[in-house]
Amino acid sequence: MGLGFDEGMDSVATRRVREMEDAFGMTLTLSVEPYPGGATILIERCDTQQSIMMDAYGAEILAAMLLLARMNSPDPVPDEHLGGRFPLHIALVVDPAPHVTVLDRDGALLRLPVHLWDRLYLELTLACAHAREMARQGGSVH
């Protein structure tokens, strides 16, 4: 069975969802959906019901922050403060156990433990590509 292309391959899906489960049973859901002028990316931690919504800009900064934290942990790194439609504060916390926190303007907090960083980095990279394509298509999908 080989790979093939369909007539509709030039359009993106209306929603992209990925679930990540670690060895301890913690599950993250990452979804990308069309939004006026682009797309939104939602990260949900199923065990704590924590969730954060961001745009591609926020997702790219979060991905970079995860990689930076991975390379520098346990040493601290500067926090990131993002403006725009989806303002965020992203920080590396080193005590008691390394984790990255993401705080939105409404006070919603998402805690991302170190054992999720590598997979989430990769999934965010893919999500950003899909979000850019949704933006290129003007937020409308076929």
Rank of each mutant, 00 (worst) to 15 (best):
P96Y: 07
L88H: 14
G2V: 09
G139K: 08
F24G: 00
Q137M: 12
G8L: 09
M65F: 13
D79L: 13
L88T: 14
Y35N: 04
H115R: 15
H99T: 04
A63P: 02
E80H: 12
D79R: 15
D6R: 11
I52F: 07
G2Q: 11
T29E: 04
F5I: 15
N72C: 12
A127F: 01
T27C: 05
P34R: 03
Y35S: 04
M54W: 02
D10E: 12
G38P: 04
E21F: 01
V94C: 06
V141Q: 07
L68Q: 14
E7A: 12
R136W: 14
V94E: 08
S51P: 00
Q49D: 06
R119P: 01
E21P: 01
Q137Y: 00
L120Q: 13
V114R: 15
S11T: 15
S11G: 15
M9T: 12
D22M: 06
R15E: 13
L3C: 00
I43V: 15
T14K: 04
D118F: 04
N72W: 05
D106K: 01
L3G: 05
L110M: 10
G4I: 05
R105T: 11
G25P: 02
P98Y: 11
L110D: 05
E19Y: 10
P78W: 06
R16S: 06
M71Q: 11
M134K: 09
M54G: 14
S140R: 15
G139R: 07
T14V: 00
V32L: 00
I61E: 14
G139Q: 05
A69P: 08
G138Q: 03
A135L: 00
D47E: 15
G107S: 09
A108Q: 15
R85H: 02
G2T: 15
T48Q: 05
P36M: 08
V141T: 12
A127W: 03
L62N: 12
G139L: 03
D55I: 06
A59F: 06
H130A: 12
A135S: 10
S51R: 13
P113M: 03
V77T: 09
P98T: 05
A127N: 02
T101P: 03
V102H: 03
V102N: 06
L28H: 06
M26P: 00
G107A: 10
Y57G: 07
P36E: 13
A69N: 10
L112Q: 01
V114E: 15
S11N: 14
R15A: 08
V114F: 13
A129I: 10
A56M: 09
V17A: 09
Y35W: 14
V102Y: 01
Q137D: 01
V141R: 05
M65D: 03
A129F: 01
W117R: 00
E33M: 06
R16K: 01
V17M: 07
I52W: 04
A135K: 06
V93F: 01
A97R: 12
L103V: 02
